[in-house]
Amino acid sequence: MELDTLYKTYQPFLFSIAYRMVGTVADAEDIVHDVFLNLKLDTDEIRDLKAYLAKVTTNRCLNFLTSARKRREMYTGPWLPEPRVNYTEQLLDKMITDETVSYAFLVLLDQLSPVERAVFVLREAFAYDYKDIAGILEKTEVNCRKIYSRAQRKIKNDQPVRLENTDQVEQIVKTFINASRTGDFAEFMTILTDDVVLVSDGGGKVRSAINPIANKERVFAFLEGISSKGSFLGELHLVMVNGQEGILQVRDGTPIKVICFALDARQLTIKRIFMITNPDKLKHIQVIK
């Protein structure tokens, strides 16, 4: 099979693995590109090409995460994944539609070790059986089962639930947009859980909260404070952030901020607010004028 054909056939699948594993668009693209660039074997001799490519991609991601952990220890403030942003009127391509992973879920995966993350992603997102996972990671099935159970225990209480009623999510997002434009966050306060946490990632490139802000009163004070200083000036667009409604702030044609939420599905309230302001994590976003 020609390399171009291989790339067109398997790139979307491999990117969806890599993005879940590393949490950054550019790095996921680079990893997949390198997989194909270094593919020197006679692919006709590989019995299961898709499984082989998944194995190579997963192991490259593991190597990347091992080195990335050291870099992230020196990162200024909380580290958040890169968001994938589409305007609501844009038609999503098939890969995004079928393989979208919620932003809150990506944040949650960062609590896991690289190997735990690999096992969890392969099992949860792609329904691999333990025999296949063991082959990819060169571990025993028993070991992979234990790793998966450990990963589940770490994040079982925080796993995000995607709401089926998008109108309700859209209304929640619009409440924040209205508050940002007026500076009055009183109504927005009513849809926050008492233990809400706001996490802001500026990466040391722009001013942002160095530590997560916990509880409703502190989040309220923080939002009012940055609003009064003009933090939300510019255009606020209702967009799709990793398949769920969120906000893109644009100023002078440049993406300034992406805001999205993790929701309590039972009470239709917000339990996590994510603000991505690091310009390095926004440069891949295309602004529609």
Rank of each mutant, 00 (worst) to 15 (best):
N143E: 15
V101H: 10
I213Q: 04
V173K: 07
I133H: 06
V206K: 02
T166H: 05
D98P: 00
T140P: 06
K174E: 04
S208L: 08
R123Y: 03
D158G: 07
E187H: 12
G202T: 09
F232V: 09
I226P: 02
S227F: 08
L233W: 10
D110C: 00
D184V: 01
F188E: 07
R153K: 07
T97K: 15
Y130C: 01
S113I: 11
E164P: 00
R218W: 04
F105M: 13
Q111D: 15
G183R: 12
I155T: 09
R150E: 01
G230T: 09
E124Q: 13
E138L: 12
R181A: 00
F188R: 01
K156Q: 07
F222L: 08
S113C: 04
V199Y: 09
A151R: 04
Y103Q: 05
R218E: 03
L192A: 01
V119G: 10
V169P: 03
A214I: 14
G202C: 07
F185D: 05
S228P: 01
V173R: 02
A118K: 12
T175Y: 00
A125K: 10
I213G: 00
N211A: 03
A151H: 03
V121H: 05
K94T: 15
E217L: 05
T175V: 09
M189I: 06
D195T: 08
R162L: 14
F105I: 01
L198S: 08
V219D: 05
Y103P: 04
K94A: 14
I213N: 00
Y128H: 13
N143V: 09
V197E: 14
M95Y: 11
V142L: 13
N211M: 02
K216N: 01
N211R: 15
N178L: 06
L198I: 04
L109P: 10
Y148S: 08
G204N: 06
D132T: 15
P212L: 06
T100V: 06
D98I: 11
K94D: 15
A104F: 04
F105K: 15
L112E: 14
I136S: 08
G225T: 14
Y148T: 12
A134D: 05
A104D: 08
D184K: 00
D195P: 00
K229H: 10
D129S: 12
V101M: 13
L109D: 12
Q159S: 07
D158T: 00
R150T: 06
V142S: 13
E124I: 12
D184S: 02
I133K: 03
A186I: 13
D201P: 09
E116C: 05
D195Y: 05
T100M: 07
T100A: 11
V119K: 11
S228Q: 13
I210P: 02
L198W: 14
V169I: 08
F188Q: 02
